[in-house]
Design a protein around this nucleic acid. Structure first.
Lengths: 137, 137
DNA sequence: TAATTAAAGACAACAAGAGTCTTTAATATC
DNA sequence: GATATTAAAGACTCTTGTTGTCTTTAATTA
């Protein structure tokens, strides 16, 4: 029971792209180097993010990846969902409707999900800025 | 990212044992039949619960499993921890102290954990009783 | 002593995660 | 139009974890 490395890489990459000056596409080569990953592997993760509508891709020279234009200030949950999918963390093995164990587990899961939906990547950018400002003082 | 079947089986078994009249040990045979599992497989799960102190076991004739006497009204989290262990759901792949991604993920995880710690198996028993009472009306 | 039952350990089958390599398709520049 | 560049897709491998099974050992009761 653990989030995959892919989710980890996806979150880091998203943050990097959010910091990139607008309209500036970044190639997978550069993104991979930063996290010490092979470009082909990261590419598969980026394709998932693209299909989820979080980033945009363009092939060819001057191509690469950038934040999707009509992206809506994505939350942590949006990124996680793009990589891990949306399945429940717990499905009761005894199939009768209204299993109370399942109900309890779902409620706990909801608590985590709610937090991840409320937290946006932009919140982190802001936190970093504030941290830097505090250090300069 | 999913809870294992073993956790599922463990929770069901715990609930069954809580309903058992006191001091009455139940063999793995009977517990396995209920969930349509092989006894040897369930046995491995039960050994984990035993080592975690949630249940007690006795070999030999009249042996079997029952709730641990000095068990402290176990929570969902206690059972999950016994099976899945205590590792974090998320560890940042870029190792610098104070990773804000990790911090956010940990906080979300805490929200789920808190709910699972607060919910006791006995709460479920009570809920079932109330449900039955409501139906009899 | 014999029957019963849990514990432990070796083993196998399968699935998922993590990652590589190669081919194809799209785009920009000359 | 040719060439270089870059993402997408698919086949493949390697490792790890889950889900079991089977067999042997140890403890307990009658």
């Amino acid at each position: 029971m653990k989030y995959s490395n892919a989710t980890n890489y996806a979150l880091h990459t998203m943050l990097h792209l959010m910091r990139e000056p607008n309209e500036n596409a970044v190639g997978v080569q550069e993104l991979a180097e930063m996290q010490k990953l092979s470009p082909t592997y990261l590419s598969k993760i980026l394709t998932k993010l693209t299909k989820a509508g979080l980033i945009e891709s363009a092939p060819g020279a001057k191509g690469g990846y950038k934040l999707a234009r009509n992206q809506n200030d994505p939350s942590f949950y949006d990124v996680i969902k793009a990589i891990e999918g949306e399945a429940n963390l717990f499905d009761c093995t005894i199939h009768h409707e209204g299993c109370l164990i399942e109900k309890t587990m779902r409620q706990a899961e909801e608590n985590m999900k709610r937090e991840l939906q409320g937290k946006r990547l932009s919140d982190l950018i802001k936190e970093v800025e504030q941290h830097k400002k505090a250090q300069r003082r």
